[in-house]
Amino acid sequence: MSLLAAAGPLEPAARSFLSPTGVEIVFLLVGVAVLGAALVTVTTRQLVHAALWLVVALGGLAVEFLLLTAEFIAWVQVLIYLGSVVVLVLFGLMLTKAPIGRSPDADSGNRWAALAVGLATAGTLVTLVVDAFRTSWIDLGAGAGSAKATGEYLFRHWVLPFEALSVLLLAALVGAIVLSRRDDEGKKPRPRPGKLRAGKPVGTSSGKES
């Protein structure tokens, strides 16, 4: 027992970057795919292709969540991001009459300043993070993010924020409907259903309107 306790602190030193586990290798490969897809998303000149590469990046992130044993969040990611957000973005591209094919003015004039800021952000954050968490290891155990565990902590400890968030989502959707409604539809007088039943011969115009 004392031998085990003595060997315990030595065990983390045995883990290093040079002997990655299988999970780490898969995480690295999927991470490279995610980064490549994200780079294509922000640099491509074909607007619809950018949305489709965003699907690849977000789907790869769902796989990363699965590798980090957060199963429920991975499936929520697939449902909400891949299912609704990307579809909304595609609808937004179509409704703003985005050109199909290459558009040469996809990037604005401050592209090089943006590149400098992005590189500075990447350098600072990666240096900081690597320096801070060089010796930290995650013990991946099964079941920490399953649907059962998620439901337990969400509805035991986080009920009030959950309900407040549902009210916020409702307000946001009502606001989106109000914003995207055309004004001329609101001003048009609606045909009252009582008039149609009042013996008036059904005209072509009222029939079309109703």
Binding site: L35, A38, L39, T41, V42, A106, D107, S108, N110, R111, A113, A114, L115, V117, G118, L119, T121, A122, L125
Partner: peptide, 10 residues
């Protein structure tokens, strides 16, 4: 960082 670049450059 890629997102920052995209927000500023697009």
């Amino acid at each position: 960082a890629i997102g920052v670049y995209g927000v500023l450059a697009r």
